[in-house]
Write a protein that binds this DNA or RNA. Structure first.
Lengths: 192, 192
DNA sequence: CGGGCCTTTGACTGGTTTCAACTTCTGTGG
DNA sequence: CCACAGAAGTTGAAACCAGTCAAAGGCCCG
């Protein structure tokens, strides 16, 4: 249940088994069924979630009721509404499960204690954030530089596995396109 | 020359005057003229730059020669090609000065020593990165959720000062639009 | 003063959305 | 096991918005 978390942790920061045990106490396992919410818009975000198994999405809903997916989180990824988590403000994003999931939750109090007690946890957090930052940077550059068809092509190259697991209209939402448009983009790519 | 840096630092992490002196030794002042490069695509990014005065931009250039601005950095902001800085790979972004600038540079070796020697510098770095992450998250959500005119309206609301200092075609580039398109968007907004 | 850059405007082209119809697939209950 | 409702994907036609190309006027800087 904790294997993947500490594997990912150790890829960033070396820790002893004692340190692992200490950190482990702060992690709360949780299972989520497909379609179940981890967080709903308006509620404060109480946890950072690490994905041991399964797949989630984080999305906002605009005034017209359209969903806009900000992020997918498969195994090994971390997900939360960070702004709400840090400030205590009501969440502006929803998080729910695309597949049945096994998660490790870190509450706000656990997060704060870990930061105080364990320098290695702070380093882990910093490196984690660095990775997320770099991924988003690439994404923004792609959005403002490339047309839709090339963006889809580079998505398939970067996350081939993900496209097998995520319904197409959610990929469209992630790309900022309508499902019909993505369907047409795909047809053009296939026929070339 | 160092005032703004430590003001911003102290807003994130409290430090004593001795700690300030210790950190100050690692900062290298540098002036940049308008249009001068801080970093050119292909060179490795050797510094993180804190902006004491002035304004810079970070952008990539695509195969057709079009510039795509990823970020602006006015006073109090930090700028670098983080991926290149961390990995040593050639930079994929350019950074240059939109106005005459006064910068504080942190070299890679300085950054690494500071991380090892000063837990408060690590915390500062982490919080810095958190802020940058949250800003980018908002930007992505805006791009995939809002039409161009609303995105421009929220930009003017969020950074009214910046729009006075940055030529319009650069704002267009930042938004992923052509200058002509932004000009028309503005006319429509003005006439409503 | 003149050249070059920036912004605006117009006409045209091409890509995206909208709305609606139709198909396929899946999960549920009879 | 089949029937059916709902969701997901595809397709078409019309409306809309952004990109392209070209031209003209304003403004700053040398």
């Amino acid at each position: 249940m904790y294997d993947l978390f500490f594997k990912c942790f150790r890829e960033k920061v070396a820790i002893s088994n004692e340190e692992e045990m200490q950190i482990r106490h702060y992690l709360m396992p949780k299972k989520l069924r497909k379609k179940q919410y981890l967080l709903q818009e308006g509620d404060p975000c109480k946890y950072i979630a690490f994905v041991e198994k399964g797949l989630l999405r984080e999305y906002s809903v605009d005034e017209s009721g359209n969903e806009h997916i900000f992020q997918f989180a498969p195994e090994g990824w971390t997900i939360s509404d960070l702004f709400s988590f840090l400030t205590g403000e009501p969440a502006t994003y929803n998080i729910d499960a695309i597949e049945d999931c096994e998660l490790l939750l870190i509450s706000k109090s656990a997060h704060e204690e870990l930061l105080l007690q364990s320098p290695k946890y702070e380093t882990y957090t910093r490196l984690q954030l660095t990775g997320a930052y770099l991924a988003m940077q690439k994404r923004i550059t792609a959005i403002i530089s490339l047309p839709a068809n090339e963006r889809y092509a580079s998505l398939t190259a970067l996350y081939p596995d993900l496209l097998q697991r995520v319904p197409q209209h959610m990929i469209a939402s992630y790309m900022g396109l309508k499902p019909e448009t993505l369907s047409r983009v795909r047809r053009k790519i296939a026929g070339s």
